[in-house]
């Protein structure tokens, strides 16, 4: 049995797929932004909070980093409707990805907080700064430079992670690949093109992040 690869039947779907790629980037961005807020709160709670808060944050991080994101989303996807909360697939996936990202980003930002010299925090306290002031004016300017590379790495990982949204019927790049596959039955062609599109997508994201890092924060990252 021989099979002839026919990319011609798939190439006319390229614009449709590229649009899906933009949705992937956007989904990753929204989840990343939400995760950064959760992570910042988590890192603050873990570093400065009372013992109970520290324990709570620690439990959140340990649980979410030790279970698969896919199963976390399955859980939300099936359990929330039973509790009367109806979310669209996109919202459910976004919620799951945000909670998951929040755990990883808490860990990354906590590590960043730990790099700030104790003396600077004491100095901030001596100047009468409140906790939010010292986080905003002392800690963050410090850690932005240290954390830029690991954070952009995390964003790239999240762009790849968005592909599991397809499982729940979200029409991002992989989701659209499922649709094109169902229409053309050119499975190998569809998924190799989509694989190549993910490569291009993440390369563009890496490049953009390293340019932004260099211009805004003077961080030098290896481009590849």
């Amino acid at each position: 049995m021989t099979y002839t690869l026919q990319f011609g039947q798939v190439t006319r779907y390229l614009p449709f797929l590229a649009e899906g790629g933009l949705i992937s980037l956007a989904l990753a961005f929204l989840a990343f932004a939400g995760g950064m807020v959760l992570g910042l709160l988590g890192a603050m709670g873990r570093t400065f909070g009372p013992r109970a808060v520290q324990r709570g944050v620690q439990a959140y991080v340990v649980f979410f980093t030790n279970t698969p994101q896919l199963v976390q989303i399955y859980f939300l996807f099936f359990v929330l409707p039973e509790a009367g909360i109806l979310l669209s697939p996109f919202q459910a996936v976004l919620l799951g990805m945000t909670l998951n990202a929040g755990a990883y980003l808490t860990e990354i930002q906590r590590a960043g907080f730990a790099t700030v010299p104790r003396g600077e925090l004491d100095a901030a306290e001596t100047l009468g700064m409140s906790l939010t002031q010292s986080v905003r004016l002392v800690i963050l300017p410090h850690v932005v430079k240290t954390l830029y590379a690991p954070l952009s790495n995390q964003y790239i990982i999240m762009v790849l992670g968005t592909s599991m949204a397809a499982v729940f019927g979200v029409e991002e790049l992989t989701g659209r690949a499922f649709s094109v596959n169902a229409e053309t039955f050119r499975s190998v062609e569809v998924f190799s093109i989509v694989g190549a599109m993910y490569i291009v997508l993440t390369l563009i994201a890496t490049l953009a992040l390293s340019v932004v890092g260099r211009l805004m924060f003077r961080v030098r990252m290896p481009t590849l």
Partner: peptide, 24 residues
Amino acid sequence: VELFRRIPFLVTLLLVFYATQLGG
């Protein structure tokens, strides 16, 4: 190394799934 770290696991999985079926 550079390419396969930029393809989502789900896509690799489906690609292997369909490609192994080509042989029949």
